[in-house]
Design a binder for these strands. Structure first.
Lengths: 174, 174
DNA sequence: GTCTATACTCCGATAGAC
DNA sequence: GTCTATCGGAGTATAGAC
């Protein structure tokens, strides 16, 4: 399922800015946000770093666009499923497929004013649909996020089986 | 309840190193890890930045000590409780009391070889005691962590009531 | 244990020509 | 839309004297 047109964060970007954004995704996923620099991004594009500022006003503006893009894509990746078990499975998979983008989109502060209005809510709405209750939805999302981020950060003790823990989580919320 | 002597990460530090560590906590909680620099830490102590290297070999070594200290203190803060509801409540409170230390200790990669052996397990053992099952414990911890970190990062939509979500979580695991 | 001096690297961002 | 040149700053860390 696709994101509504009016929520698509890319809709107002120039074609070249979209290319820059796509390259930023590549570098982000390869190096992580902290080591993505305007210089490394420019290298990826084969241009000089100062040229980037013709397309994005600052590195932070680029970050906001990446986050918006992530909200859109994660929302799309999780939407076609129904039921708590399938939702949780899809959430885990989409995060694992783009770990650095997931981390960027869900960690640290969020400048809501810079996002398309309604995008954040739309991105999380599958949890509401699957649970039928706002607080239940929020609790399930938080639990799934905790699992994902601890797994991405390698925080579960070595040798532990996350699969069984995921099953446990689904059981409690199923 | 206090941490076993042999797990206390501070036990091998010189008195002066402990003072440096204490100052690092202050600066960390005030500025966050990314903006804690060797210079700002030195300023807090009223000494010059290079002097710090007499006590800690690198900034990363300092980070490891802070994380170990956090594991000890969070373990102590959560241990005297029994039952899922009280555990979750204590976990939330101890994180909220030292948000930046919590973030440092639970986010990003962890160099386990640099920690006192057994400290990490000891820190998490209250979850095992409260649930009686390893996977249940892990799921509860992940859910609680997800709630805490999203709350600290201001990721719940404005106007939403985290209290009710916390209650929801306790209900499912209670 | 602290100091001064400093090396070295990297960063985001701007100015102005083409 | 891209370039070159550059600013201004920050960061970790080392060397060596006291």
């Amino acid at each position: 399922m696709t994101c509504p047109e009016e929520l698509d964060p890319v809709r107002l970007l120039t074609p070249r800015a979209r290319e820059v954004l796509a390259a930023a995704r590549v570098v982000l996923e390869r190096d992580g946000w902290d080591t993505l620099t305007m210089r490394s991004l420019a290298d990826e594009l084969g241009i000089a770093a100062p040229s980037l500022y013709k397309h994005f006003a600052s590195k932070d503006a680029l970050r906001t666009q990446l986050i918006a893009l992530a909200l859109k894509e994660f929302g799309e990746g999780v939407r076609p499923v129904s039921g708590v078990a399938a939702l949780v499975r899809a959430y885990r998979d989409v995060a694992a497929a783009h770990p650095q983008l997931y981390r960027l989109a869900t960690s640290g502060s969020l400048d809501r004013d810079a996002l398309p209005p309604g995008l954040e809510d739309w991105s999380g709405s599958p949890f509401l649909e699957a649970t039928g209750d706002p607080h239940r939805a929020q609790a399930l999302w938080a639990a799934a996020h905790g699992m994902v981020i601890l797994e991405l950060d390698g925080r579960f003790p070595t040798g532990s089986a996350p699969e069984a823990t995921w099953d446990e989580l689904v059981t409690h919320f199923g």
